[in-house]
Simulated assay, not measured.
Amino acid sequence: MSNQPYLQDSYFDNMPQEISLKRWQSTVNVVSEIFDVPGAWIMQANIKGVEVLVANESIQDDFPAGIAFDFNVNVYCKTVIQNKKTLYVKNAEKEGIWNNNPEYTDAGFKSYLGVPLQWPNGDMFGTLCVLDTNETNYPASFIRLLWQLKELIDGDLRNLLLIKKLKKQSVTDELSEINNRFGFIENARQLISLAKRSRMSLSLMYFDINGLKIMNDSYGHKMGDFIIKTFAEALSKSIRKEDIIARLGGDEFCFLGVHQFDDKGETVKLRVTQLFAELTKSDERIKGVSFSVGCKSFDPVNGFDLDKMLSETDCLMYANKKSTKEAQK
């Protein structure tokens, strides 16, 4: 869309479950009755333009949800969205600036009252608005009422962000900023379901940072935290976008992705090793830090039991750790 400044996705196409669409529908229905107008809408500024998210029931046949105006079109809501403030047009015919607005010229909506809907940081979400084919002269109490309803919808948007934040915190490791064990299991189950349907093999890698306790004891927990965060960064930069990684706890990490390890994971292991070395090259104390890894591929024929998969690769990781220690003797 040309000159489209609002890049949020259309909620009409994918309404978040956390938002009560039923309550928003009830809101516009009541607004249209109180204001005694043919149309009341909740609009969203998104990648489509200015889109109708919710329309009162009596207008849905003519102006249903899903209709979007290009942001270059001079609709009333565009002015509200750009200026972030209330717009009241009593009679568009008398103002002379709406002659290229299809809401007025094609649909005959002379009167418009709209208020901005905003995210907690002040960014625009869209508008709550009423339109009438007749000239209007709403009392100040009506305008205050619409603003009060706007604040309730803004509250829904604020709660949406809060719920998303809490959900992210519940599946994210605070230190490494990648999945925690719960987040890994949740995402792994989705990938396993996809692998079963598509009959794809999956590869799992289990990592353990060697010598982390020694670094903690020698240089303090800040050093240990830095090593964990840096290893997570190296691991993140070594995988594909669709792959899943997590810090399972302590110094243990894992990776799950569609099978790609004909070399038993050596390519990924080498990539992580090189990136970790590059990210820590400025600190001589970290040169001795390494990691052990276990890697195994699993196919749909034998099934995907996640607990068993983790247990098997964990054993392979410890076998790798043991053989490395013996080789260093």
Rank of each mutant, 00 (worst) to 15 (best):
L175F: 02
E186N: 14
Y138H: 03
N134E: 14
K167T: 02
E135H: 01
F184S: 10
Q190R: 11
F142V: 04
I143Y: 04
T172A: 05
D156F: 10
V130W: 08
E151P: 07
T172H: 05
K196L: 15
G155F: 12
S193K: 15
L157V: 01
N187C: 08
A195C: 08
A188I: 00
K196A: 11
T133D: 07
F184N: 04
L175W: 02
K167L: 13
R144S: 13
G183K: 05
A188M: 08
A188W: 06
L152R: 07
S170W: 03
L146N: 00
N180D: 06
R181Y: 03
D173H: 02
R181P: 08
Y138Q: 01
V171I: 15
L191W: 01
W147N: 11
E135S: 13
E174G: 06
E174R: 13
L157D: 11
A195R: 02
S193G: 04
I192D: 07
T133L: 05
D156E: 14
F184W: 00
K167M: 10
Q148D: 12
N179S: 15
E135A: 08
F182Y: 14
E174N: 09
N179V: 10
W147E: 08
Q148H: 09
A140D: 14
K196D: 13
E186F: 10
A140M: 10
N179L: 05
L157T: 06
L131Y: 07
D173K: 07
S193R: 10
G183Q: 05
L162D: 09
D154Y: 08
T172S: 05
N180M: 04
L161V: 09
K167F: 03
L162Q: 12
L152F: 14
T136V: 14
E177Y: 07
R189Q: 15
Q169Y: 04
Q169C: 06
K165Y: 10
Q190A: 14
Q148G: 04
T133R: 10
Q148K: 04
I153K: 00
R189T: 12
N180I: 04
N159M: 15
E177H: 13
F142E: 02
L166I: 13
N159T: 15
Q190D: 15
K168C: 09
K168Y: 06
L166T: 08
L149R: 02
S170P: 05
T136G: 02
T136P: 06
Q169P: 04
E177N: 14
R189K: 15
Q190S: 14
R158F: 09
L162E: 12
E186L: 13
E186P: 10
R144D: 11
I192W: 00
W147L: 08
N179F: 05
N179E: 03
I185L: 04
E174I: 10
D173I: 09
I153G: 02
R189A: 10
K164C: 09
G155T: 12
S170E: 03
K196T: 14
S170A: 15
R158G: 11
L166W: 12
L194P: 00
R158Q: 14
N180R: 07
N179M: 03
N180L: 01
L191T: 10
K164R: 15
A195T: 01
A140C: 05
S176F: 01
W147Y: 12
R158H: 11
P139R: 00
F182P: 07
L191N: 04
